[in-house]
Design a protein around this nucleic acid. Sequence first.
DNA 1: AATATGGCACAAA
DNA 2: CTTTGTGCCATAT
Length: 114
Amino acid sequence: MKIDRNLVYKLLKQVPKGKVTSYKALANAAGNPKASRAIGMFMKTNPYAPNVPCHRVVYSDGRLGGFSGKARIDDKIKMLREEGVLVKDGRIVDFKKHYFDKFSIEKAMRATLP
DNA sequence: AATATGGCACAAA
DNA sequence: CTTTGTGCCATAT
């Protein structure tokens, strides 16, 4: 594998509350800009459900990721809204405003996972 | 080993 | 702004 899923999880943990990021940003931070799709896989099979806020990861254009179903998506939207990220009709309001891509690769390297 | 599928991204029309 | 088509990486069978 070319991507270190452990690193991806650490990076995602850096996203502050009320902010969102994209699979692209994570893939880029992990060192494989083309592995955005694989990042989705990591979220799907993430062993750190509460620790890794996969619901904070969205499409690069601000839409919610595929997830599994509308009900599921709706639940994520609700959680995001509680954190301060408004979602309207499957799209994040002021996506640029909430977008976070200033990941610290060094910091992630030094971080530890439970 | 090969094929299909999936919580993606991007260019082109 | 929307719809197609193509490329990419990691699993499942």
